[in-house]
Structure formats: structure tokens, C-alpha cells
Computed example of a mutant assay.
Amino acid sequence: MIRFLAKRLGQAIVVILLVTVIVFLLLHSVPGGPARGILGPQASPQAIAAFNHEHGFDKSLVQQYWAFLSRLLRGDLGDSYTLNQSVGSLIAQRLPKTLVLTGMSTLLALVIAVPLGVWQGRRRRGLTDYAVTAVVFIGYATPVFFLALILVIVFTEKIPILPPQAPQTQSLAGLFADSRGLILPVLAGAIATVAAFSRYMRSAVLDNLAEDYVRTARAKGASERRVVWLHIMRNSLTPIIAMLGYYLPVLFSGALVIESVFNYPGMGLLFWNAAQTSDYPILLGTVLVIALATVIGSLLADIVQALVDPRVRGAIR
């Protein structure tokens, strides 16, 4: 197990380094560079040269990347060009709110998707299974921003029972104090996730229904409820656990869109505002945090999967 963890940690470090290189090169390949984005298209060559010299953009890309990496190892993500704050403090303010949004959406999705997948697996190829599958595929194929807009139109205009935007607050306590404003963002994030997880759960249940241990449990006189909810569901959760870690990039990208639609004060809104003002330190810091969360999520998913599934533990050994 220790060798497995060491190997996965080494792979995680390599992935994060590659992400920093790719994102750094992409952000610096924008026409005009950061100076043109911050100072505007009418900026004089002298102003651009002064800006580049002040922020080190007049050096070679290798020198700029090494300076960036050195600051990153010290925990310094740089300073925002437009907000006059450190990127680390801005992310520290916004990240907990994004985690609340993604966490609540994922929890709601699992509460719905796991029983739904089990129910579909037991009633496979029936009329209700086909009907639910059609609805699930529609939810899975619909873009997140479109789902969010539909929810806004239905529940704030046609049936005006919910506010059109999330609570505008600087604290987590303020978010929960106005819980009605969280309903639509959480629901928008959960719909697409339910569609994905329920399909995986249904497939896993179908695979486990054909296993020998199911026939053995039934032959021993175990009730159908016990067979399904104790044996089949436990073994069917393994791919869902693995999927949670690998699904983190999708969850975060969905949160970025949802936050922009509902004006939710998280990292997504911070990212979009930075993109509009060409605030490169914020863009780079946000992408790095998402990459780090993805790598950590994948690592935790592998560890939990090894603890849950004896077959994975045997393969690791």
C-alpha cells in the first residue's frame, strides 16, 4: 500500500507540473500578452514596456516560468492586477463557497442517483426503465448553463417562488442564512450529476446481478431486499466511488458556469471576472487550484476504492 501511495503521489506531482507549464504557456500566448489585456488596446509602447519590466514579462519564458514556480513553491500565487489583493487571499475567500456548492450538489445527486440506479437495474428493460433512461439522457446531454437558465425562468418568472441569484455575502454563514438562494444553484449542479451517476449505478447493478455470490445468497434463503441493498448495492458502489474522484474536473467546471449564471460569489465568478479583465495571476491560480483538487480527488478515490474492494487491494499487493 505504501508503494502504491508513493507511486500515485509521484504521478500527481508530475501532472501538476505539466499543468503549470501548459497553463503558463497558454496564458502568455494571448495576442498582446498580459500588458495589452490590462492596459487596453490604446496603451502606448512605453506604457506596455514599463508594465512588462515591472512584472518581469520582458524576460524569457523560461526565466518567467522559473520565477513563477519558485513563488508557487513558497505558496505565493502572486497579486491580482485589478483587485489589489493577493491571489491566495482571494482564492481562500472564494474556494470554501465553491466547495459548499459542489459538495451540496454532489450529495444531492448521490442521494437521488444511487437508489435510482438500483431501482432501474432491478427493473431493466421495462417501460419505466426506458422512460427514466430517456429523461436521464436528456439531463446528461443538456448543457449546464441551459439547465440553469431553465430553472431561473421556471422558478423565478413562471412560478416566482425562488430568488434568481445566490446570496451575495462574504461569509459561509451568510450563504446558509439565505438558504432559499442556494436552492437553484445546487439543483442546477445536481441534475447533470444525477444523470451520470445513475447510469453508472445501473450498469454496476446489472453486472452484479449476474455474479455467483448473488445466486449463493438467494440459495441460502436471503430476502431479495437484503440481497439487493446489502450485497449488490455495496459492490455496485465501487465504480461510483472511483468516478467521484475522476469527476471532480466536471463538477468544478459546472460550478464555474453555475456561479456565473446565478452570480454566486465563488471561484467561478472570480474566474469569469478575471477573464474579462485579463487578470492573469487569478486565472493561473484558479486553474492550478482546480488541477490540484482533481489530482487529490483521484488519489483519494483510488485509496477509498482499495479499502472498499478486496480485488483492488489484491492487485495493489
Score class of each variant (00 low, 15 high):
L110W: 03
V214G: 13
T128Y: 02
G126T: 11
K158H: 08
R125D: 15
A222F: 14
F145E: 01
A222V: 05
I161Q: 08
R202W: 04
E211V: 09
F176C: 01
F197P: 01
A177Y: 08
Q168K: 08
V136S: 15
T156A: 12
G139E: 09
R199I: 07
A109C: 10
L182R: 06
A188E: 12
T193C: 13
P163C: 04
A166E: 00
D212L: 14
K220M: 15
F145H: 01
V118H: 01
E157M: 14
K220Q: 15
I112F: 02
G88W: 01
A195P: 08
I161T: 13
L187G: 07
M201P: 07
R124W: 03
V194A: 13
G88I: 00
D207L: 12
A177G: 15
T156K: 04
T156Q: 09
M104S: 13
A166G: 11
A204S: 14
L182A: 11
M201R: 03
R199Q: 13
P163F: 00
I91L: 15
A204H: 04
L95C: 06
K220H: 15
G117M: 03
A190K: 05
R125L: 12
P163I: 08
A219K: 09
A131L: 14
R123M: 05
F155E: 03
L187M: 12
G103I: 01
Y140M: 14
G189L: 09
N208C: 03
Q120D: 09
A195H: 02
R180Y: 02
V194K: 07
L175Q: 06
G103W: 03
V186R: 04
L147A: 08
A141D: 03
S171N: 05
G117K: 00
L162S: 02
M201S: 11
A134T: 12
L95V: 09
P185M: 05
A92L: 12
L101I: 04
A196C: 03
I161M: 13
Y140G: 13
R215Y: 13
K97M: 15
D207I: 10
L95I: 10
V205Q: 04
T142G: 04
S105F: 00
A148Y: 00
I161N: 07
I161C: 10
S171H: 00
A195W: 02
Y200L: 15
V136C: 11
